[in-house]
């Protein structure tokens, strides 16, 4: 196995064009012996920045959660992103885990994807050809071989967001997570923890949330088994967190 540290995105893309190559960022989601012949380190690519531009906040893929939490974008929409970072793993891990890695890792409990989905964030994907994908597209379909997330663009929005998680301890993996964003155009809702991060369209828009509507939206979900909590319990917790988050964000 080889561990390579390219200096530019172009070089990284070239090195990733290999049948058994994987990008590495924070390294927190890799097993002891990674199943790859080539690891390509992204942390020396200078993708570590948060810049405020007219079309939104541009966040480099290797920005760590600790850095994101202290950047201006974290305070947008009532500290929405700060809430998602606050109990994302723990202090030393927040110094390692990167924004790109949290989106690309595919873990159900990842905090950023549901939040970014409700904000309508886009990702810039570097590869043989540059392309733009929504966070949902990255999480649901994944990237192609040789591609990497270079940057995330988060629109500047003036509403309010609330993120909530349910876990064994505050710093443990989220068994249920909810992200609700609200402004004059309506409400956007996403969930994670018990299923792959996704929007819950049934609960969006200007509608009032009735118990029947909530039951219908949540009962459709098929939770991935969890070592401590059974699926019905987690669905119940999800309904409670959704109600609380929606009430908080709209008052």
């Amino acid at each position: 196995m080889e561990f390579l540290r390219p200096k530019t995105v172009e070089e990284a893309v070239e090195l990733l064009d290999h049948p058994h190559a994987l990008p590495v960022a924070g390294g927190t989601a890799f097993p002891g012996k990674p199943n790859a012949e080539r690891l390509v380190d992204l942390t020396s690519l200078e993708l570590n920045y948060v810049e405020e531009r007219p079309d939104g906040f541009h966040v480099g893929a290797t920005t760590t959660i600790a850095e994101l939490e202290r950047s201006p974008v974290a305070e947008m929409a009532g500290g929405y992103i700060r809430q998602a970072c606050e109990f994302l793993a723990d202090t030393p891990l927040r110094n390692m885990i990167t924004v790109g890695g949290n989106i690309a890792c595919g873990h159900l409990w990842a905090h950023l994807p549901p939040v970014l989905m409700t904000l309508g964030a886009r990702t810039i994907i570097a590869g043989k050809r540059k392309r733009e994908l929504t966070v949902y597209e990255v999480v649901s379909a994944g990237l192609q071989r040789g591609e990497l997330i270079q940057e995330v663009i988060i629109p500047k929005l003036g509403g309010r967001g609330v993120f909530k998680k349910f876990a064994l301890t505050r710093t443990d993996y989220a068994a249920v997570s909810v992200a609700v964003y609200w402004d004059e155009l309506g409400r956007r809702v996403a969930v994670g923890g018990l299923v792959r991060p996704q929007r819950l369209g049934d609960l969006e828009g200007q509608i009032d949330i009735t118990p029947e509507l909530l039951d219908r939206a949540v009962d459709e979900l098929n939770p991935v088994p969890h070592p401590h909590f059974d699926p019905e319990y987690r669905k119940h917790v999800l309904k409670v967190l959704l109600q609380r988050a929606i009430a908080e964000v709209e008052h």
Partner: peptide, 27 residues
């Protein structure tokens, strides 16, 4: 634990605590 849970492997890298059981030495 060697898996990022217990934190006793923490060292400072450029002044910041990180879990050394997860950080690739090459980094």
């Amino acid at each position: 634990c060697s898996e990022g849970h217990c934190g006793v492997c923490t060292v400072l890298v450029d002044g910041k605590p990180v879990k050394s059981c997860l950080m690739f030495a090459a980094q």
